[in-house]
Computed example of a mutant assay.
Amino acid sequence: MTKRIAFLASDVDVAQSAREALVARYGNVSPRDADVVVALGGDGFMLRTLHSTQHLDKPVYGMNRGTIGFLMNEYGETDLLSRLSEAEEEVINPLFMKAMDQSGAMHEALAINEVSLLRAGPQAARLKISVDGRERLEELVCDGALLSTPAGSTAYNYSAHGPILPIGADVLALTAIAAFRPRRWRGALLPKTAQVRFDVIEADKRPVMADADSISISDIDWVEIRSEPKVQHRILFDPGHGLEERLISEQFT
């Protein structure tokens, strides 16, 4: 049976040109009426597509028309229907972030890759870290810290020297960014069910921002993060090129 496809593309010319060619060949419907959503761009656009379509419970198949394509498949026009029929589905859960800024305003966001805290001034951030209500690190002096899902462990987390996590692992990676004190603290592996809280010490003097998949909150006072099992993102990959294989391959390149 022919699949009804919704083609979405980033704003860059190469992605828009690809969308025009694919729509001419396969037709196009709205994401709500589609059997599958095809996202054309890089990983950033893929994340935006997953967020914007999460309420539809539709699988998303990405094709790389951007600079980074860890979540994407190779681009091709001629055999898309057979690739979609043979694609393997990965289901991932995002992180839920709840943050309060210094004005007392509350903010909420979902993050597929990671939630990161970053210093927003010239001085290092000072963070207190608690896990499931228990203080675990009285003070981390750093440029920042992040909590990553397995799907996001090869992104910012990996650049910050955090561990690569198998996609099926029920763990989260807590990673320091340029830790100054404790100088050798590299972070921790936490169960997926853990709730992590960061309290900003001297928030007025050492401002910190929080970022959840590019949704940024300035001048935060504290942040709580946990996995959100009620939200499921369905991502399609060509056989033999799923997230599990990519995570393993990344460690041998």
Rank of each mutant, 00 (worst) to 15 (best):
A145Q: 01
A145F: 03
A145L: 10
A145V: 12
L146G: 03
L146R: 05
S148Q: 02
T149Q: 08
P150H: 08
G152Q: 00
G152H: 00
S153M: 04
T154M: 03
T154S: 14
T154P: 03
T154V: 02
A155N: 03
Y156P: 00
Y156T: 00
N157L: 01
Y158P: 00
Y158V: 04
Y158L: 15
S159T: 11
A160D: 01
A160Q: 01
H161Y: 04
H161W: 01
G162C: 04
G162M: 03
P163Y: 11
P163V: 13
P166C: 11
P166K: 08
I167A: 14
I167T: 13
I167N: 12
I167C: 05
D170V: 01
L172N: 01
L174W: 02
L174R: 02
T175N: 02
T175Y: 01
T175F: 00
T175P: 01
I177V: 15
I177D: 01
A178E: 00
A179W: 07
A179L: 09
F180Y: 14
F180T: 10
R181T: 15
R181C: 11
P182H: 08
P182A: 09
R183W: 13
R184H: 15
R184E: 14
R184Q: 13
W185T: 03
R186F: 00
G187Y: 10
G187I: 13
A188V: 04
L189M: 14
L190T: 09
P191H: 06
P191E: 10
K192L: 13
K192F: 11
K192W: 07
K192N: 11
T193M: 05
T193I: 08
T193H: 12
Q195G: 10
Q195T: 15
Q195M: 15
Q195C: 14
V196R: 00
V196L: 12
F198C: 10
F198G: 09
D199H: 12
D199E: 15
D199A: 11
D199C: 05
I201N: 04
I201F: 06
E202Q: 15
A203M: 10
A203N: 05
A203S: 15
D204N: 13
R206M: 05
R206F: 10
R206V: 12
R206T: 13
P207D: 07
V208W: 07
V208E: 03
V208N: 02
V208H: 05
M209P: 00
M209R: 14
A210L: 05
D211L: 09
A212K: 04
A212N: 06
A212P: 08
A212L: 05
D213S: 05
D213I: 07
D213H: 02
S214Q: 14
S214W: 10
S214G: 08
S214V: 10
I215H: 14
S216G: 00
I217S: 03
S218H: 14
S218Y: 10
S218M: 13
D219L: 11
D219C: 07
I220M: 07
I220H: 06
D221L: 14
D221V: 06
D221Y: 06
D221G: 14
E224K: 13
E224N: 11
I225H: 02
I225D: 04
I225R: 02
R226Q: 14
S227I: 10
S227E: 14
E228M: 10
P229T: 10
P229M: 08
P229W: 04
V231E: 12
V231Q: 13
V231D: 05
V231A: 11
Q232H: 12
H233N: 12
H233Q: 13
R234P: 07
R234D: 04
I235F: 03
L236S: 04
D238E: 14
P239M: 09
G240A: 08
